[in-house]
Amino acid sequence: YFIKIDKWYPSSQLCSCCGSRKKLTLQERIYKCKCGLTMDRDLNAAINIKNEGLRLLEVA
C-alpha cells in the first residue's frame, strides 16, 4: 500500500515512544525526550511516519 500523510505532519517533533511534542532546531540531530528515549532525529521521524501511515490505513 501507498499511504500519503500530510506534508505538515510533525514527524521529527514527536516522540515515537510516548508521543510528546518537542520543537527542534535543524542543527539538533539527536532527539532526546523526557521519557528517556534518545535516538537519531531522522530515525525517530521515520518511525513516526510509519506509525501515522498505519493509523491512516486502519481508518480507511
Results as ranks from 00 to 15, higher is better:
51 N>M: 15
15 C>R: 01
36 G>Q: 08
58 E>Y: 07
5 I>M: 01
46 A>M: 14
44 N>P: 12
12 S>V: 03
24 L>N: 05
51 N>H: 15
8 W>I: 08
12 S>K: 00
30 I>T: 02
28 E>V: 09
21 R>W: 10
19 G>T: 07
36 G>H: 06
41 R>W: 12
52 E>S: 04
28 E>Y: 09
59 V>A: 14
60 A>R: 08
40 D>S: 10
17 C>H: 10
47 I>N: 08
24 L>V: 02
53 G>K: 15
28 E>S: 10
60 A>S: 12
16 S>C: 03
58 E>W: 11
49 I>L: 15
4 K>Y: 01
29 R>L: 07
57 L>I: 12
31 Y>F: 09
10 P>N: 02
23 K>G: 06
22 K>Y: 05
9 Y>R: 00
24 L>D: 07
6 D>E: 05
39 M>D: 06
52 E>R: 11
7 K>V: 00
8 W>N: 05
15 C>N: 00
2 F>E: 09
46 A>F: 15
15 C>V: 00
31 Y>T: 06
30 I>R: 03
47 I>V: 15
14 L>Y: 01
36 G>M: 14
46 A>I: 12
1 Y>S: 01
7 K>E: 00
59 V>E: 10
25 T>D: 15
58 E>R: 11
8 W>S: 10
41 R>Y: 08
38 T>I: 12
58 E>M: 15
17 C>Q: 07
39 M>Y: 10
36 G>R: 10
22 K>V: 10
31 Y>H: 10
